[in-house]
């Protein structure tokens, strides 16, 4: 089957790729563009390890087809830190020891960024429900939630 040509923007940079109709955005990111920061944990939208933003909206990239991102703005973990340093959320995850194996971490950081852009002052319960689509098997979520709440406070105070 002929591949489809897609023109899109990833982390603010123009990008073109060819993909099969059945390829997911996750497949394209990982296998065609070699952006392996976005992880696959389930391929069925249950674990959130492949979280990215699509036109600012948080999605599981395993549930989006590559051809669907034509003309869209895609945001991945690779775009969270700027060239000159880590994003506050990334710093807080390190400071709070909010990761163990780290496989869920890119997805959780992308989700946290989306949460705090939507709601800069979440309650603990709001943070827990927003991140309910991001599974972590190592931490029991305690330190993740602390890092999220601390990030929110720092971002409110700083920027």
């Amino acid at each position: 089957m002929a591949k489809t040509h897609v023109t899109t923007s990833i982390n603010g940079e123009p990008q073109e790729f060819l993909c099969e109709p059945g390829d997911t955005l996750l497949d394209v990111l990982r296998n065609d563009l070699n952006m392996t920061g976005t992880k696959e944990g389930c391929g069925s939208g249950d674990c959130g390890a492949c979280s990215v933003t699509l036109n600012g909206r948080l999605v599981c990239s395993c549930l989006v087809l590559g051809v669907e991102v034509e003309g869209a703005e895609v945001g991945t973990i690779e775009g969270v830190s700027s060239g000159d340093g880590l994003h506050v959320i990334q710093e807080k995850f390190l400071e709070h020891a909010a990761l163990q194996c780290g496989i869920c971490t890119p997805g959780i950081i992308v989700s946290t960024k989306a949460l705090l852009e939507e709601n800069p002052n979440p309650t603990e319960e709001e943070a827990r429900y927003y991140l309910a689509g991001n599974l972590c098997r190592c931490t029991g979520y305690d330190k993740i939630i602390r890092a999220v709440m601390d990030s929110a406070e720092t971002l409110r105070g700083g920027a």
Binding site: R30, N31, V80, S81, L94, A97, G102, P106
Partner: peptide, 23 residues
């Protein structure tokens, strides 16, 4: 002490290479 882990930077930026990440 509660130091920052040495592999942490790669893990919060998506650079760390896991089982499926080698081509």
């Amino acid at each position: 002490q509660r130091t920052v882990r040495p592999d942490g930077f790669d893990k919060v930026t998506g650079r760390a290479a896991y089982g499926a990440d080698l081509t």
